[in-house]
C-alpha cells in the first residue's frame, strides 16, 4: 500500500514538472464548463469561465497540486494572450462604422462613463481602507480580461484578485442594465448594448448578443473602446495621484 502511494506521489511530481498536466486540465475544464453552461440553459449569473475555473480549482485541490505549479505549467497558454489582445482590434474595426450612427452619445458618454466605472469602485474601496494593491486590482474591473491583465501588471495589482473582480462586475453589470433600463424605460438596443459592453466587458457583451445582433455589435464596440480608453488613462491617473 505504501509502495503504491509512493509511486503515485512520484507520478504526480513527474506530471507537475511538465506543463502537460496543467494544459490538459485547462482544456478539459474549458470543454466541460461550456457543456455544463449549455446544460444549465445558459444562466447569466454563472458564465462558462466561472464554471471552468471552479472545475480546475477543484481538480488541483483534489490532486493536491500547488496552484503555483499549475500556474507555471499553464504559462504556456498565456503566451498567446498578447496576440489575442491584438486580435480584439479586428472586431473593433468591423464595428467601427456604428460610431457614425451614434457618435454623439459615444463621444460624450464613453470617456466619462469608462472613467467613472473605475473611479467609483476605487473610491469606495479606498474609503473602506483597502490596500494600494487591492485598489490597483479593482481599477480595471470593467475592462475585457486580456487588456485588464496588461493594465493590472502595469499598476502593480494582483491578476487573480482582478479576475475575480472582473467576473463579479460582468455579472452585476448584466443584472443592473436589465433592471435599470426597465426603470428608466430605455429600450433602444444600441444604448443597451453600449451600456452592457462598457460596464460588463465580455460577459455583458455575451448578454447583449442574446438581446439581438444590434445590441451585440454596439456592446463589442463599447467593450473595445472602453478597453483602449482605460488602458491609456489608468496608468496615467495612477502615476499622477501616486496611489
Amino acid at each position: 500500500m505504501t509502495e503504491l502511494s509512493n509511486r503515485f506521489q512520484e507520478l504526480l511530481e513527474l506530471l507537475s514538472v511538465s506543463p502537460v498536466l496543467a494544459i490538459a486540465l485547462t482544456f478539459g475544464a474549458f470543454f466541460a464548463g461550456n457543456r455544463l453552461f449549455e446544460g444549465l440553459n445558459r444562466p447569466a449569473w454563472l458564465p462558462p469561465i466561472l464554471i471552468s475555473s471552479m472545475l480546475v480549482s477543484a481538480a488541483i485541490a483534489i490532486l493536491a497540486i500547488d496552484y503555483g505549479d499549475y500556474r507555471e505549467g499553464a504559462q504556456w497558454l498565456s503566451v498567446l494572450l498578447g496576440p489575442a489582445t491584438v486580435a480584439l482590434g479586428v472586431p473593433l474595426y468591423q464595428q467601427m462604422h456604428h460610431i457614425r450612427a451614434l457618435w454623439r452619445p459615444i463621444v460624450f458618454t464613453l470617456p466619462v462613463a469608462a472613467t467613472l466605472a473605475a473611479v467609483y469602485a476605487v473610491l469606495i474601496a479606498a474609503l473602506m481602507g483597502a490596500s494600494p494593491e487591492v485598489l490597483a486590482s479593482l481599477a480595471p474591473k470593467s475592462v475585457t480580461a486580456p487588456i485588464a491583465i496588461g493594465i493590472t501588471e502595469q499598476l502593480g495589482g494582483s491578476v487573480s484578485l482582478m479576475m475575480g473582480g472582473l467576473l463579479i462586475t460582468g455579472i452585476m453589470a448584466t443584472l443592473f442594465v436589465d433592471l435599470l433600463a426597465r426603470r428608466l424605460s430605455i429600450t433602444d438596443p444600441r444604448i443597451l448594448g453600449l451600456a452592457l459592453g462598457l460596464n460588463g466587458h465580455a460577459i455583458g457583451t455575451a448578454r447583449a448578443f442574446e438581446l439581438g445582433p444590434t445590441a451585440g455589435a454596439f456592446a463589442s464596440l463599447g467593450m473595445g473602446l472602453t478597453g483602449i480608453f482605460t488602458a491609456l488613462i489608468l496608468p496615467l491617473a495612477f502615476s499622477l495621484t501616486g496611489i
Partner: peptide, 27 residues
C-alpha cells in the same frame, strides 16, 4: 473582502446608472 465586494457591487450599480443616464440624455 468586504471592501472589495461593496466596491464591486455598488460601484457597478453606480456606473451602469451613470452610463444609461448619460446615453439617454445625449441620444
Amino acid at each position: 473582502w468586504l471592501a472589495v465586494g461593496i466596491a464591486l457591487v455598488l460601484g457597478t450599480l453606480l456606473s451602469v446608472l451613470t452610463t444609461l443616464w448619460l446615453m439617454r440624455r445625449f441620444s
